[in-house]
Simulated scan of single mutants.
Amino acid sequence: MQFHIENMTCGGCVRGVTKAIRSVDPSAEVAADIPTHKVDVTSARPAEAFLPALAGAGFEAVPV
């Protein structure tokens, strides 16, 4: 699945996004692309499961 996170602009943001995603699924694979603000997540959990954790970390994510 993929998310667009407009306010992900640096490596610190990527760490925060990754931490939020892994708080929901510790085994999730996360690949972020800062210039496009896209995050690819490989997980058995549905995309909607990650949205509250990302919002709580300050990242408004939009499933793509």
Rank of each mutant, 00 (worst) to 15 (best):
G56M: 05
F3M: 08
F3E: 11
H4Q: 13
I34D: 10
A49N: 04
M1H: 11
G56V: 09
S23C: 07
A53E: 04
A47Y: 01
F3K: 02
P35G: 11
K19A: 14
D33T: 12
F59E: 04
E60H: 12
A49M: 01
K19P: 01
D40P: 09
A47W: 09
P35T: 08
A31W: 13
G12S: 12
A44C: 02
P52Q: 02
A32W: 00
G56D: 14
P46V: 03
A31G: 13
F59N: 06
V17C: 09
M1D: 10
K38T: 14
A28L: 02
A61V: 00
D33L: 08
C10N: 07
E6S: 13
S27F: 14
V62R: 10
E6R: 15
S27E: 15
V62A: 12
K38F: 05
G11R: 10
D33Q: 13
Q2N: 15
V64E: 15
K38V: 08
H4K: 13
F59L: 11
S23W: 01
S23D: 13
A61L: 03
V24M: 00
T18Y: 01
H4T: 13
A28P: 09
T18K: 06
H4N: 07
Q2C: 11
G11L: 11
A20Q: 03
G11E: 09
H37A: 05
I34T: 05
V24P: 02
M8E: 07
G56P: 13
S27Y: 10
C13S: 13
T18L: 02
A44V: 08
V14P: 06
A28Q: 11
L51G: 07
T18E: 13
A44E: 11
V17T: 07
E29T: 14
A44K: 11
P35I: 08
S43L: 09
R15C: 06
R15W: 12
R45Y: 04
A49C: 02
P63K: 03
S23N: 06
C10E: 00
V24E: 01
L54A: 04
A28G: 10
T9Y: 03
P52S: 02
D25N: 07
S43M: 06
V24N: 04
A53G: 05
L54S: 03
G16D: 12
P26Y: 06
M1E: 10
